[in-house]
Design a protein around this nucleic acid. Structure first.
Lengths: 236, 236
DNA sequence: ACCTGAACACCGTTCAAGT
DNA sequence: ACCTGAACACCGTTCAAGT
């Protein structure tokens, strides 16, 4: 306990004052390494050689910290240059780029999917997507709806892909579920039974490994293809 | 403290033993009423007139409880009868029905989006979607990919729609964000500036009210339309 | 089998105080 | 302005014990 204090002091001797940006940075790395549940005001404080209450001065409360950290993930999205590409190619590229950014910080996927995430860090993405959809011919109210279609699809889909089961370490429930799935009544579930080997652990709602370990690359590409084809048809 | 025990005892006098199903039921209602953060092993135990540790006997730990509760939301999805409908109409109906089910339990949206949710409760949905996609002409590996396209789109999109900002009660950050948004540099963000009035609080990443309070009905319908058109094109 | 009761090692957050 | 230090009211979870 006093030992902890000593180490803390040692690490932080003659140190520049904390900044909000620095706290968020360290928190992001911490979550990447130790998981979202391990992100604790106290743990982060210890990591930074500071008292927990110091974080409150910079960040407000924990909810705001988490919001700031999740916003930083979207900052990482690489936006292709653009005006030399067709609108549909550009959209595909940026969708894959969003997915990559989220895959780089899978522990934050739940937060990205469920947090409003209003920050100026996302504005470049918004600007470019709106721009390219205008070039595709969408305007006014339809433009907004199509924008929401695209963003909701990409961010939502990948959130689901990266979702996890309870207790990642525990694989008893995995085997139990697989057994339960394979013994499903064939007359009650004929279509499922017909395709069981293809579905098992490969399809949403009937898989036990997360997209973290088992990327759903082909499905995402198909989803993207469906999206683009749908948008083309919508333009008519 | 001993007062608490007395009330607990009173509520639960001559009571049938707890069942797993009952715990999950009460937990779902509790989350609907008080929010996900308020769901605590201790609070739920008090609600049920029982010691916290009694829950552990039935549910395992909290992660498993939450998983079971979120699975129950999917149980609520109304599946239209089917074989008298065209595949595309059926898919639209069931997508709207999924969204309705999630909107009935908005506090659980973050969990549905981010939890693997492997339970037999989702099997009817899986069966029917697979069945209808086969009828639409998809088979084998493509069938799986298209299935993932559909499920990922619907569940993911609605998860995003129902997402919330940090500290729901606090509306300082909302005003602050709106001000920040409206003062965005017009030369850096021309497309955004052109459509600012349409976008503000209506589009993903630039809204401050949750889809709980501000349903994105039109956008979801458009998204659905794009999905269906895309699937039609994919069949060719 | 099902639950009580006590205990442990944590949390987030507030508030006064230092510099 | 920025941080320490102590304190408060909680958590989830384990384990022994009761019936």
């Amino acid at each position: 306990m006093s030992e902890g204090n000593v180490r803390r002091r040692a690490t932080r001797a003659a140190r520049a004052p904390l900044s909000r940006a620095e706290v968020v940075e360290v928190a992001l790395r911490y979550v990447d390494e130790h998981g979202l549940d391990a992100l604790t005001m106290r743990a982060l404080a210890t990591q930074m050689g500071v008292y927990p209450t110091a974080l409150y001065w910079h960040m407000g409360d924990k909810a705001q910290l988490v919001a700031a950290v999740s916003a930083k993930v979207l900052e990482d999205i690489v936006l292709p240059s653009g005006h030399d590409m067709r609108w549909d190619d550009w959209l595909s590229t940026v969708a894959l780029s969003c997915r990559d950014a989220m895959r780089r910080h899978p522990n934050l996927a739940p937060v990205i999917g469920s947090q409003l995430a209003v920050t100026t860090t996302a504005l470049p993405l918004v600007e470019r997507v709106i721009d390219v959809l205008e070039r595709a011919g969408f305007t006014g109210q339809t433009l907004i709806e199509v924008y929401n279609t695209v963003i909701g699809f990409v961010l939502g889909w990948v959130t689901l892909e990266l979702s996890q089961g309870p207790a990642e370490g525990n694989d008893e429930w995995q085997q139990e579920y697989e057994a339960q799935l394979r013994s499903a009544n064939p007359t009650a579930y004929p279509a499922l039974t017909r395709n069981l080997d293809l579905l098992a652990n490969n399809a949403f709602l009937v898989r036990w490994d997360s997209g973290r370990d088992r990327p759903m690359d082909l499905s995402f590409e198909t989803a993207l293809d469906v999206l683009i084809r749908g948008l083309r048809a919508k333009r008519e």
